[in-house]
Write a protein that binds this DNA or RNA. Structure first.
Lengths: 229, 229
DNA sequence: CCAAAAGTGTTATTGATACACCCATGG
DNA sequence: CCATGGGTGTATCAATAACACTTTTGG
């Protein structure tokens, strides 16, 4: 590898932890690498930050390449900079996580990858580079965020039931929550709008459908809402 | 400036927000820059990360150069990467904050600075580069940390009174707290050891002295203690 | 009529807030 | 004896946690 000593002595990259929700399970989107090192292994999607590109635009670009999505929730989590974290040179990487709605989403292999695939977050046990550590930090950050603010609606379809929301919270926190307490608390926040419709075609009592009140959400975000579930 | 187009197309740096406490006021250590750009202006101490240096070691190095201190509390806060944040080239910077005990501490001008000086955190209104933004993020991080875990003992002398602790919290949070409630709550955590001594030479009833129980602290940190004041 | 998930209230416990006076010392 | 900060307890209110049964639909 001529890498370390040639054009590229040091560089910065971003790595993206893209979360989705499927069957009440928290998923993460990985790519099958088409480049050395770790070619053909499943890893976090990432790329070098271009010299004329704002740092924050790099994860946006990757997200758009892989999913076609723009304007998704995106949060910077931590920067990883061990000298030997990349076997081919000095690369400091900034870890971001984002939340996307998996409905109608067909991630496509982009230039950086030969394949993309969703994986169960809590079943992964290792990843190349320090990607496993990055993933763990992002999970913890997501869990903390979800506890203190009503985040994660990005993971739900446009109209959803209260049980969907609870499933989401249980998937993210990876634990069960009390139904009555959850509903009481969540409804009292006034973030949900009753759309006056019900589920159809389900083999049980159909649930009320809600949508999400964006304006209230922004208000809460602005003054740092304290949400503890 | 030949900077932008010559050896240095892009680089990463760290910037350090070093907090101290003096007269119940939260302070931050700034340096008077001895280099372009912004020569002779007061700014956060920072430096490029060396190619063979772990990211986390860079703020440690700076801290040691300026204060002689090692093993101080250090937390990575955020990475700043606007294309134009540095006028001479592309520099992405990682912001760290640390907490140091100002007693017996004589910060010295190091290679990066002609002078160093403590400033009142809440009186600063602007700084060069995006340092003001970095400072603000670090303040918020410190405030959140202090709210949810018993952090900040690094800012106190080895033996202190309960009022010292309250002063610390008030300085960090920049607001007044109820004395009885504070004491009740703080003592109930069991983090303080009564050293069975009292202040001397004060013109009022002398206060009990405490020291800090490190083992309990580590225990709390490990399981993510929930401290809300 | 059975299976499945939706929906609903009350009680007990815990934690948060608000608040005012006496105590020990130095000067 | 005065000024200064140290030290203490209670009552109210709000939030959290624990807990079980009825309802509506499809098959």
């Amino acid at each position: 590898m001529p890498f370390r000593n040639s054009f590229f002595k040091s560089a910065f990259s971003v790595d993206n932890v893209i979360f989705g929700l499927e069957n009440s399970t928290l998923k993460v989107l990985l790519i099958k690498r088409s480049e050395v090192p770790f070619i053909n292994e499943w890893a976090l999607p990432g790329d070098l930050v271009r010299v004329d590109e704002d740092l924050r635009d790099a994860p946006k670009r990757i997200l758009k390449e892989l999913t076609g999505l723009q304007d998704v929730y995106l949060d910077q989590v931590h920067t990883f900079g061990k000298v030997d974290r990349h076997p081919l040179g000095r690369v400091i990487t900034v870890g971001y996580y984002s939340l996307v709605n998996m409905d109608n989403l067909k991630p496509r292999a982009a230039s950086i990858a030969s394949k993309v695939k969703w994986f169960d977050v809590f079943e992964l046990e290792s990843l190349p580079f320090d990607h496993f550590e990055i993933l763990q930090k992002c999970i913890r950050r997501l869990q903390n965020s979800v506890r203190e603010m009503p985040i994660g609606f990005e993971l739900l379809p446009e109209r959803f039931t209260l049980s969907d929301v609870q499933d989401l919270y249980e998937a993210v926190l990876n634990k069960n929550l009390d139904k009555r307490n959850f509903r009481k608390k969540f409804l009292s926040m006034g973030l949900l709008i009753d759309v006056k419709k019900y589920q159809t075609g389900v083999a049980h009592r159909p649930a009320k459908l809600y949508k999400f009140e964006t304006s209230k959400y922004e208000e809460f975000k602005a003054k740092g809402f304290n949400f503890e579930i």
